[in-house]
């Protein structure tokens, strides 16, 4: 019995070692590109302009040799943009879409058909700056009660007044490649309930196939933490 147990353990260990070696080989084949980008929101309010900005890291990796087809693994580390408004209200620009926002904002349309490495190298230029096209705007949200995540509400970028009242309007959303440090901590100061995992949603639905808005927003839409 003991001899069988030792053999089984050796077999498991051998298979594990083979898989680990395969992972290391594949990891060595990955071509990776990264850059920091700053997203800035400017909002007109009855009390003047308010501004919020956040610097995050975008990473593009081709670990499968498919970069010539424009495919790869895309990632983002950073926070949502938070704009402080009057009366204790806040406007947030969520993270989703941030890893591809640069190519649609800062590159010529002709570049979009190029390979992943070509597009990435074109984006790794500090100082590149442009207005985010409306179709690539981040999702904007606010909270009826900032201490209760389930009160999250979507904000129409074309009609901030409908949410915040007369005199509120989105003036601009710009993106810039930068060498500034990554922003961390601003969103957590405002949203004290953010947890350590990105998966939890802000609300629960009675029917997950007809989810409420809060159930479509995750903690990970506000923060992707640095290691």
């Amino acid at each position: 019995m003991k001899r069988f147990s030792n053999f089984h353990q050796c077999a498991v260990a051998a298979r594990l070692a083979l898989l680990m070696m395969l992972a290391l080989v594949l990891a060595g084949c990955a071509e990776e590109f990264s850059w920091r980008q700053k997203l800035v929101l400017v909002v007109e309010t009855p009390d003047g302009e308010r501004r919020g900005e956040s610097v995050g890291v975008v990473r593009w990796r081709d670990a499968t040799g498919a970069s010539e087809m424009g495919m790869g693994q895309l990632g983002f580390r950073g926070e949502a943009v938070v704009v402080g408004l009057s009366e204790g209200r806040y406007l947030f620009a969520l993270i989703k879409g941030r890893q591809v926002m640069g190519q649609y904002t800062l590159l010529d349309k002709a570049m979009l058909g190029k390979s992943l490495p070509e597009r990435a190298q074109a984006l790794q230029v500090v100082g590149l700056k442009g207005r985010v096209p409306p179709e690539r705007y981040p999702k904007l949200v606010t909270f009826e009660d900032i201490t209760r995540p389930e009160t999250v509400r979507q904000v129409d970028p074309n009609d901030l007044a409908a949410t915040f009242g007369e005199g509120y309007a989105l003036k601009s959303i710009t993106l810039e490649i930068t060498d500034e440090p990554v922003t961390m901590g601003r969103v957590e100061k405002v949203l004290g309930w953010l947890g350590p995992y990105p998966e939890p949603t802000l609300g629960k639905s009675e029917d997950i196939y007809s989810p409420i808005f809060a159930a479509t927003v995750n903690h990970g839409d506000f923060i992707r933490r640095q290691k």
């Binding site: 995992y197 998966e199 997950i208 196939y209 007809s210 989810p211 159930a215 479509t216």
Partner: peptide
């Protein structure tokens, strides 16, 4: 995400995804 359609199927929202899934 949740509520969207693919053919005759309706996608369920991510609210049931366990903590630590992405990690």
């Amino acid at each position: 995400g949740g509520g969207s359609k693919i053919g005759t199927a309706t996608v369920g929202s991510d609210e049931l995804l366990p903590d630590g899934a992405q990690a």
